[in-house]
Design a protein around this nucleic acid. Structure first.
Lengths: 234, 234
DNA sequence: TGACATTTTATGTAGCTACATATTATTGAT
DNA sequence: ATCAATAATATGTAGCTACATAAAATGTCA
């Protein structure tokens, strides 16, 4: 990157971001046209375009056709979270993964679950509760509802051996996934399962997936005490 | 977009993602070369390249030079969180924003704060505690440490009027931001500030920012009870 | 056989042109 | 003056070529 007489779009991006960082371009400011920047920095417009796209994706600038490019006036912190399969996450920590099925039955969805799917009325779905272990200790308690209309096959799966988490992620791809993060106090039942004090604050990761408009599954993953979710490192 | 004889890179991406979804390409499978896909789908290689890049960014596939493109064997849920300035967030909910400075002093950083910055020894920094309100009620309690070496100017700011959150985000851009999410039980002090029951489970959003290698600030934002963090909607 | 150099190959990128598209700005009709 | 039609313009995209780069595959030599 030192003597490159050909500057890459990432160089251009860094130059432009640098100007945002050093206040050459201030929040709300309009940037020059791509073409002018290209001329100034000695590259093609397509290179500026790519750089700008990246900055727009990162939330640094906003672009509008004909309107031009502006530095975002209300900067947001954009964090990207990677939530892997629980087994993979446990093994990545160097721990031994374990799994226990706690409950499995066809049941009518509570209203809250129907709401997650955007359904107006409860439906009969497969309700699965399971515990994921790391080195024999509770790691994540998973409370899952699976739409039997889109996942009838799962009833044939032996969920005492294979986790629904894993089966679904490998066999039921989705096109949309909503994630919701919040904290709960452990009730007595969860506390016992999670080897936590009743009332302990636990992070909950709730995910709901669809394939097209068809609901697939919704999971409430209650994590063990002191669990932390980090943004991905570069 | 219906009769486009010219297919866009997004069409190509959707076609390819569709093949992953319908298991034409299964997890771990190697996809054909971009050039072959381009020929098959009747577009230029550059169009396939863009589509593939997007799928790679989304975590659907992995690409390696010479190695080719593979469907990710361990699918991850990739969630993008936008964390706005607290005032903007409150106002976006249609509530009236309020702000109170609770504490402001130069202090030596606790070890945990030094650790967040990757410092081996404590340093003197500006310690600011403040409460953000929505409709007169506690919304977020912010416990912040500001590096005086990089942000000396902040000592001239009247933090009883303007929140450090806002001042920093508008005046101290950063190039790196680590985010950490977890749950805590409200201790007596927080409980009183947040109008919560002692022991209530609260979601904490911790952010640490740098400009280059220079630490800027680290914030521990304790949210009010029942606060939820959602992924951005498309 | 093993270590190292060389070739091959699939993706990555820069530059160019041409055209598409979404807005804004201008013009014109009423 | 108001609103609709029209032009102007900045970004968005497709296609092409040429070359860069990383990594796998192959070949070479001790």
């Amino acid at each position: 990157m030192t003597s490159a007489h050909r500057s890459s779009w990432q160089d251009i991006r860094d130059t432009l971001q640098g100007r945002v960082l050093d206040r050459t371009y201030r929040p709300g400011d309009k940037l020059p046209r791509d073409e002018d920047i290209a001329e100034e920095l000695g590259c093609a417009r397509s290179t500026v375009q790519r750089a700008m796209q990246d900055l727009a994706d990162a939330g640094v600038v906003e672009r509008k056709r004909k309107g031009g490019t502006h530095v975002r006036p209300d900067p947001v912190t954009r964090a990207v979270l990677d939530i892997p399969i629980t087994r993979v996450e446990v093994e990545a920590k160097g721990a031994v993964y374990g799994y226990q099925l706690v409950h499995q039955a066809r049941e009518m969805t509570p209203l809250s679950v129907a709401a997650s799917f955007g359904l107006s009325a409860p439906e009969e779905m497969l309700h699965v509760e399971a515990l994921h272990l790391a080195d024999q200790r509770a790691y994540v308690f998973e409370d899952r509802w699976v739409n039997l209309e889109s996942c009838a096959e799962i009833e044939a799966v032996d969920l005492t051996r294979d986790s629904a988490n894993e089966w679904l992620v490998r066999n039921k791809p989705y096109s949309r996934c909503d994630v919701r993060l919040y904290a709960v106090n452990a009730d007595d039942r969860i506390a016992e399962r999670m080897e936590a004090m009743p009332g302990a604050a636990l992070l909950v990761i709730e995910r709901t997936t669809w394939l097209g408009d068809v609901p697939i599954t919704t999971v409430r993953s209650v994590t063990r005490p002191n669990y932390q979710l980090l943004t991905q490192k570069a």
